[in-house]
Amino acid sequence: MQELINLEIPVAQHLQAPIIEIKGLFKAFGKNNPILKGVNLSVHKGEDVVVLGKSGSGKSITIKCIVGLVQADKGEIKVFGQEILDMNTGQLNEIRVRIGFLFQNSALYDSMTVRQNLAFTLQRHAKDLNDEEVEKEIIEVLESVGLAEAIHKMPSELSGGMRKRIALARTLILKPEIILYDEPTTGLDTITSREISELILNIKKKNNTTSIIITHDMACAKLTADRIVILKDGVIHAEGSYTELENSKDEWVRSFFI
């Protein structure tokens, strides 16, 4: 049973067109393995939406469809009002530079130092910047994640939490309007998880970004979510604020909050 609760999104946000709009998204791997069976999701500018669901419910697939890493079988995905499923790679890349993606395992480039990881991304999209300006941007963004001292380190020298922060810095260096977080606190201790969650919150406040956060960490969800959606059997099963879903009549929904 789908439970859709009235959302406390400001009126101004409701009037705006959603920055991400997903309608009837289908994705199957093989003939008998449908993962998404008609996902509908709208995210407004400045909103942080947390996506919950059991492992394998298609949360990561949904956000990978948004950036074109996974090709959807059917449905519509509009980002910044543009339908991305019909786009060629060039058009999609124009959208991609406006979207940041934080991977579950950070996905830092192993053969590059932290500085090179950031410069590699920045120099390809801001070709008018000279070396000094690139260096300034790198230091600025590393300071914003509290890791300016790690600039010359290799990814293998960093802890899990540090890798996440550097990956986030690499995402932020292109000043994205939307950030998609794929399990940002997975594999981290409670304190580091909280630090990452607070960082997500600070980024939103500072840059007014829109986010979709996939997580199993309820502390992270509580701290960051303006709205929570729960995926079940390939569709959005429930939607609402943290408090609303915590007190849901649906026992399965409540089980996430125990």
């Binding site: 950036v67 890493l69 991609r96 993606f101 991977f103 996905a107 830092l108 480039y109 690499r170």
Partner: peptide, 9 residues
Amino acid sequence: QIDAMEVAA
């Protein structure tokens, strides 16, 4: 890492 490059256009 290859996916990370792709999403960074």
